[in-house]
Amino acid sequence: MDHLFEFLSHQMFLQTVYVVVLMVFLGIEVISHVPSILHTPLMSGANAIHGVIVIGAIIVLGKVDISNIPAILIGFTAVLLGTLNVVGGFVVTDRMLEMFKKKK
């Protein structure tokens, strides 16, 4: 049983590494032909995407016992900050790009 468990967790680890390596190449490939005028919106858009960390914060807050006040406070703050990152990031990017569109 122990062996099986170890094997599984090992497989899972390999799978994760696999995803990580592919994503690194994908990230490089996706970005490398961007014209410099789009650097700012792109940075801002990427900034919004890493706000996906809010999912982790939601899971944390969702698993904390309500009687554990410090943990609830920290979890609540984490979700709040993560949401700021996501929503603010996407809205700011949209505002920048809206301006690009108008002039056509």
Partner: peptide, 19 residues
């Protein structure tokens, strides 16, 4: 073991470095 966070994070990590 959350694939959305993993892919999103690494994507931004590598794209951000290239940028």
């Amino acid at each position: 073991n959350n694939k959305a966070m993993l892919t999103g994070g690494i994507l931004v990590g590598s794209a951000g470095t290239i940028l």
